[in-house]
Computed example of a mutant assay.
Amino acid sequence: MKKILFILLFTVFTSINGIAQGLTWHTNMDEAFDIAAKEEKPLMLFFTGSDWCGWCIKLQNEVFKTADFKKWAKDNVVLVELDYPKRTPQAQELKTQNYELQRMFNVRGYPTVFFANPQNMAEGKKNLNSLGSTGFVRGGAEKWLAVANNIIKK
């Protein structure tokens, strides 16, 4: 009886823990690129100032932390967070990667979300084909997801 109770509690805890963990936001672009290419999904690149940008925090709270977004993201995209914090320290390699991507996509404000298809080229080179971009959209997850779907379904 104790074994059955232990297995039941373990199963419940594991399920709750899996739900609480939510989504994987990659910070290494090479890893995210490879995953997206393998899964044949577009990348969702979230350019954010996580510790200072009010609209970025609002987008996270009203959209990215919702159950609707989590389900949609798992089914449709590979998530990449490209952060430009003011107070949170970052490794130099991460800063360099993020600023190169910011220049590449010509990001001028935060939050900006770009969707791009990964493409492996000859000689091991990688290419990102931009599908479009958005930022904060008023109306919560439903409205934001409608915009995102229009971009990735083109």
Results as ranks from 00 to 15, higher is better:
Gly22Val: 07
Phe115Val: 07
Asn98Leu: 00
Lys95His: 11
Glu39Phe: 03
Lys126Ala: 03
Ala148Arg: 10
Glu123Ala: 06
Val147Thr: 09
Phe136Tyr: 14
Leu45Gln: 03
Asp30Gln: 15
Gly49Glu: 05
Ala32His: 04
Lys154Gly: 05
Asn150Gly: 15
Pro42Lys: 06
Asn120Met: 06
Asn117Gln: 11
Arg103Ala: 07
Phe10Trp: 13
Leu23Glu: 09
Gly124Gln: 10
Trp52Gln: 07
Leu43Cys: 07
Lys154Leu: 06
Ala36Asn: 15
Phe115Pro: 09
Asn106Gly: 08
Met1Ala: 15
Phe46Met: 12
Ala73Asn: 11
Leu131Pro: 15
Arg108Ser: 14
Gln90Ile: 09
Leu9Phe: 04
Gln60Pro: 14
Val78Met: 07
Asn117Tyr: 04
Phe115Gln: 01
Ala67Met: 03
Phe13Leu: 02
Trp52Arg: 11
Asn127Phe: 08
Gly18Ile: 03
Glu40Arg: 15
Val80Ala: 09
Thr88Ala: 01
Tyr99Cys: 05
Lys86Cys: 01
Pro85Arg: 07
Gln92Cys: 02
Ile4Phe: 08
Leu8Ser: 15
Met104Val: 02
Thr66Asp: 01
Val78Gly: 12
Ala37Ser: 15
Lys2Ile: 10
Asn76Gln: 14
Val147Tyr: 01
Gln102Ala: 14
Val78Trp: 08
Asn106Arg: 14
Pro118His: 07
Gln97Val: 15
Ile7Ala: 13
Leu131Gly: 13
Tyr99Ser: 14
Met121Ala: 12
Leu94Gln: 10
Asn76Trp: 07
Phe136Trp: 05
Ile19Gln: 13
Trp25Gln: 08
Ser133Val: 03
Lys2Pro: 06
Met104Leu: 10
Ala122Arg: 05
Ala116Arg: 09
Thr134Ala: 05
Ala37Pro: 14
Val113Phe: 01
Leu8Met: 09
Lys58Asn: 04
Tyr110Glu: 01
